[in-house]
Amino acid sequence: MLPVSYYILLSAVLFSLGAVGVLIRRNAIVIFMSVELMLNAANLAFVAFSTMYKSLSGQIFVFFVMTVAAAEVAVGLALIVAIFRSRHSINVDELSNLKG
């Protein structure tokens, strides 16, 4: 019988780690992975509350979040590949021009 706050605490820790990852890393792929980590932290909170309230809607939401994450990753990685082709770098510090 765990209190739900354990899961929410873990979710908060993982979300903060993801946010820090977006801010400190310069590799665009690792930044993307940190965003995935934040999405997963949110999903964990969704499932914890879904179990707490005995309502399946939270789990359906996680299902949709997974779909959106898959779409986002497909487009994002395509963008990274396109950027790498034109700039030969995925360091976000070097991508500061609006007009390449």
Binding site: V4, S5, L9, A12, S16, L17, V20
Partner: peptide
């Protein structure tokens, strides 16, 4: 960035434990 991330963590944990009724035990 690390300091701000710590702020985010402290804030969310504070919000979690300052609000009253999230003691709901999971099965």
């Amino acid at each position: 960035a690390i300091i701000l991330g710590l702020f985010l963590l402290v804030e969310s944990v504070y919000l979690l434990f300052s609000a009253g009724n999230q003691k709901g035990p999971l099965p």
